[in-house]
């Protein structure tokens, strides 16, 4: 030790200390990297956890109910003595309400996107976009309240005999809620279309609308399709608006004027009750949840794939 000490600093080795510092520095750096990696892997663990829980409880469920009857039965009465487990009943509510929502969200969202991207001055765009964003930040329970206590009474005046709970009102409000999502992704897609393409069209004597509809819209189509699909996924997974305004009674119907439970509303209904852990009723919500996850996952993957394809094109 004394042999290679720094002159004037007794007892401190020169080389080995530098090595030691390098070693400790490397250890620290590696430890930090490992910690950061662990944080990043939490998201993977979350997915694993979701899949594990849903599959585990669904497996127990499908041990008692055959997947065939799950898919084909036309009744959903898990809590009755004569229990039936036809997910199609809940799916019909989900499909009907989502269809209503899309009939509202796609025309409105697309029109807004074309308007903001191709017609609006930069100034009005800068004002409109944040307000749209605010709209999508409103909690869904608030939209539910609005659907049940504001929109439904209005609809009841227009459509006599409309029940207090109905898929129409919930679907319309859900559509309005999805408009900002559809508008914003579509607008991003259209704005990414190169200016050269627009100039090509304008140079042929086309107007703004002709250019927007014949050139920009087709060029941005995969991006816009992604917006629609992500919108569908959002509608399928929406819970509170439906639980509040469409009722929680399972009802095999494609008529938006009727009340019906969606997959999500059913889960809420069961969770509000006091079902014992491990009962068949408890397991149904996981089977329903698995169905929901697979549905939204499929839509999300298609949407993301379309979006990626669009980004590669430009």
């Amino acid at each position: 030790m004394a042999a290679n000490a720094i002159p004037g600093v007794p007892g401190r080795p020169v080389v080995s200390e530098r090595l030691a510092r390098k070693f400790s520095r490397n250890t620290k750096e590696r430890a930090i990297e490992a910690l950061l990696f662990l944080a990043a892997s939490v998201s993977v663990l979350t997915t694993a956890g979701i899949v594990y829980i849903l599959v585990k409880e669904s497996a127990v469920f499908f041990g008692q109910v055959s997947p065939w009857s799950f898919l084909t039965d036309t009744q959903w009465t898990p809590l009755f003595d004569d229990a039936h487990f036809g997910i199609g009943v809940l799916l019909s509510g989900t499909i009907t309400s989502s269809a209503v929502a899309l009939l509202v969200a796609i025309p409105l969202g697309t029109t807004i996107a074309i308007y903001l991207s191709e017609f609006a001055r930069p100034r009005s765009r800068e004002i409109a976009k944040p307000i749209l964003e605010l709209l999508s930040g409103v909690p869904t329970i608030v939209y539910g309240y609005f659907a049940l206590l504001f929109v439904t009474p209005i609809l009841q005046k227009l459509i006599p005999g409309l029940p207090g709970f109905n898929l129409l009102s919930a679907g319309i409000v859900m559509g309005i809620m999805i408009v900002p999502l559809v508008a914003s992704i579509s607008e991003d897609a259209m704005r990414a279309v190169p200016m050269a393409l627009r100039e090509g069209s304008f140079a042929m004597g086309a107007t703004r609308l002709q250019t927007a509809l014949n050139v920009v819209f087709p060029a941005a189509l995969s991006g816009i399709a992604a917006a629609y699909i992500l919108g569908i996924s959002r509608a399928v997974g929406e819970t509170m608006i439906l639980a509040v305004a469409a009722g929680m009674q399972p009802n095999l119907t494609f008529n938006p004027l009727e009340p019906a439970a969606t997959i999500t509303a059913y889960i809420v209904q069961v969770a509000l009750g006091d079902l014992p852990h491990g009962s068949i009723g408890y397991q149904t919500i996981f089977a329903a949840g698995l169905t929901l996850l697979l549905l939204t996952l499929a839509f999300n993957l298609i949407g993301l794939w379309l979006r990626k394809r669009f980004r590669q094109a430009y």
Partner: peptide, 29 residues
């Protein structure tokens, strides 16, 4: 622009068929 046409620096065909690309100006008319 209907009387004076233009060809750009980078080719900018529309995302349409060859036929529709050429027919575009006529359709606009």
């Amino acid at each position: 622009r209907m009387r004076v046409s233009m060809v750009f620096q980078k080719p900018n065909p529309f995302p349409k068929s060859i036929y529709e690309n050429v027919a575009y100006g006529l359709r606009v008319r």
